[in-house]
Design a protein around this nucleic acid. Structure first.
Lengths: 126, 126
DNA sequence: CGAACCTTACCAAAGCTATGTCAAGGTTTG
DNA sequence: CAAACCTTGACATAGCTTTGGTAAGGTTCG
């Protein structure tokens, strides 16, 4: 048998059972379940848990932040919107005359956010 | 004159002056400064502030999370490490026999994290 | 000079994060 | 069936986020 219960998994990964449940809720490591609902941690999950700890420690990030990164990679709209915001945040190109600052910026933002809000194939007039 | 002081910027963007300073500390919108140190918000900054609010409201994310996204896009090591972790989190391919689970996973993680730890040379010159 | 701005720095409170613990109840197994 | 697990849910707490003040002091301008 190569699947551990939550206490055993906690043992070998250094997390507490409590935290394993928390990490699961965040969506970072979701173990399989036995027919009775017991969490079953296989080698992949155990490895992910160890590496997760290393990641947090090395970069001083929190679980929530990794959770947000997960959300970013799963939710294309969110990812698009965040990227759009950062793109718009980039420096104004030299060739845009000062008078057009506002237009250029507004336009860019509106286009990007609108695109994210209403994906092309769902476009309707209005 | 197309640069507003912090109170004026607060007025037109709906943020409080307090929050504009906070947003600056997080690194999301960093206005220029006058010779005396006064923050000067130009049209681009004002637009970013408005769009930022929209982004937060629409997706229910927090400033810290957008701040983390910023960190992700600026810190190639962090980005690499997070991506490595997610890649390793992907499902084990069918063709890897059960006996090799552990090796496969460990190897993958170690390679990815090592690569991130010892970056080649072309880090983005932020 | 003085009013009305601005700056940084510190105190505060409501809310969330990360973590523990305990309770009520199901599962496994000797 | 009882010990020793497991489950979810709730209460608790130290610390950080978010946001608002307030204080001490510089800047602008009439």
């Amino acid at each position: 048998m190569d699947a551990l219960t939550i206490h055993e998994a906690a043992q070998t990964t250094g997390w507490s059972p409590r935290m394993l449940r928390y990490i699961e809720r965040i969506g970072l490591v979701e173990p399989a379940r036995s027919s009775a609902g017991y969490r079953l941690y296989g080698p992949p999950e155990l490895q992910r848990l160890r590496t997760l700890r290393e990641l947090l420690d090395r970069f001083g990030v929190g679980l929530t932040e990794v959770g947000f990164a997960l959300r970013l990679r799963r939710d294309a709209q969110l990812r698009g919107a965040v990227e759009a915001w950062f793109e718009a945040t980039a420096q104004r190109p030299e060739h845009v005359p000062a008078d057009d600052w506002l237009h250029w910026e507004q336009d860019k933002h509106q286009k990007l956010l609108a695109a994210v809000q209403r994906p092309p194939h769902l476009m309707e007039t209005g």
